[in-house]
């Protein structure tokens, strides 16, 4: 059981370290006008940033 858990953890960390994700973001004139408050100290995902 312990070996299986360790193996799963190893695979999880290995994939996390070695799989590149490519994000595409389109910057338009509208992007500049998005009235989002200053978000210092606030973490949010890539997906929510620009539609």
């Amino acid at each position: 059981m312990g070996v299986i858990v360790l193996l799963i953890l190893f695979i999880y960390v290995f994939v996390n370290t070695n799989l590149i994700k490519v994000e595409k973001i389109t910057v338009t004139n509208n992007t500049k006008k998005i009235p989002i408050k200053n978000r210092t100290n606030f973490r949010y995902s890539w997906k929510s940033a620009i539609s």
Binding site: Y12, V13, N16, T17, N18, L19, I20, K21, V22, E23, K24, I25, T26, V27, T28, N29
Partner: peptide
């Protein structure tokens, strides 16, 4: 440490219209 947990490495592509 040569590992990442909970965040994948990434490349960002910006497309300027």
């Amino acid at each position: 440490l040569p590992l990442r947990i909970n965040y994948f490495p990434g490349i960002t592509i910006f497309n300027f219209n």
